[in-house]
Amino acid sequence: MKSKYELDQKDINIEELAKKALSDDKLPKELMDGILSKDNTTRKNCFETLQIISNEKPEILYPKWDHFHKMFKSKNNYHKYIAVYILADLTKIDKDNKFNDMFEDYYRILAGDKVMTASHVALNSSKIAINKPELQEEIIERLINIENIHQGKQKELLKAYAIESLREIYPEIKDKEKVMKFIEEQLESSSPKTRDLAACFIERCE
Rank of each mutant, 00 (worst) to 15 (best):
Lys10Asn: 10
Leu17Arg: 13
Glu138Leu: 12
Ala21Ile: 05
Val115Ile: 07
Arg142Leu: 14
Lys80Gln: 13
Lys155Val: 03
Ile35Ala: 08
Thr42Tyr: 01
Asn145Leu: 09
Ile14Asn: 09
Thr49Leu: 06
Glu134Gln: 09
Glu206Asn: 14
His79Phe: 13
Ile14Gln: 12
Asp8Lys: 12
Val179Ile: 06
Phe182His: 08
Val115Gly: 04
Leu50Pro: 02
Lys20Pro: 06
Ala199Ile: 00
Leu123Thr: 08
Lys80Cys: 11
Tyr78Phe: 13
Thr117Ala: 00
Glu16Pro: 12
Ser54Lys: 14
Gln51Thr: 00
Ser37Thr: 03
Thr91Leu: 05
Thr117Ser: 02
Asn76Cys: 12
Lys75Trp: 13
Lys26Glu: 15
Ile128Thr: 03
Leu158Phe: 01
Leu31Glu: 10
Glu147Ala: 14
Tyr5Met: 05
Glu184Ser: 15
Leu123Asn: 07
Ala83Ser: 08
Ile82Phe: 06
Gly112His: 00
Met116Gln: 07
Lys38His: 14
Ile53Asp: 03
Ala198Pro: 02
Asn45Phe: 03
Lys181Asp: 11
Lys92Phe: 05
Asp196Cys: 09
Ile86Asn: 02
Lys95Gln: 07
Ser119Leu: 00
Leu87Tyr: 00
Tyr81Glu: 08
Ser125Tyr: 00
Leu27Lys: 11
Val179Thr: 03
Glu206His: 13
Ser191Thr: 03
Phe72Ile: 10
Tyr107Ser: 09
Ser3Pro: 06
Asp89Arg: 15
Tyr106Gly: 05
Ser189Met: 09
Phe72Gly: 05
Leu166Cys: 04
Glu172His: 09
Glu134Leu: 06
His150Thr: 01
Asp96Glu: 14
Lys4Tyr: 01
Ile60Lys: 11
Met102Gly: 04
Phe182Asn: 01
Leu36His: 12
Glu138His: 07
Ile86Leu: 09
Asp175Val: 10
Glu168Ala: 08
Glu56Tyr: 05
Lys70Thr: 10
Phe182Lys: 03
Ile169Tyr: 00
Gly34His: 02
Ser189Phe: 10
Glu188Asn: 11
Pro63Ser: 11
Lys29Tyr: 15
Glu48Asp: 06
Thr117Gln: 01
Pro28Tyr: 08
Glu30His: 14
Asn13Arg: 07
Tyr78Ile: 14
Ser23Leu: 12
Ile52Lys: 15
Glu177Leu: 09
Lys64Ala: 10
Glu203His: 13
Asn124Lys: 03
Lys20Thr: 14
Ile86Ser: 02
His67Tyr: 15
Lys98Glu: 12
Glu206Ser: 14
Glu48Trp: 12
Asp196Ser: 14
Lys70His: 13
Glu138Phe: 05
Glu177Asn: 07
Thr91Asn: 03
Pro192Lys: 04
Ile86Val: 09
Lys95Ser: 10
Ala83Val: 03
Arg108Lys: 13
Asn13Cys: 10
Glu203Arg: 13
Glu188Pro: 01
Leu135Lys: 02
Glu177Thr: 11
His79Tyr: 11
Lys26Tyr: 15
Asn97Arg: 08
Leu143His: 02
Asn76Asp: 15
Asn55Phe: 09
Ser3Gln: 05
Ile146Leu: 15
Ile128Met: 04
Lys44Gly: 02
Val121Asn: 00
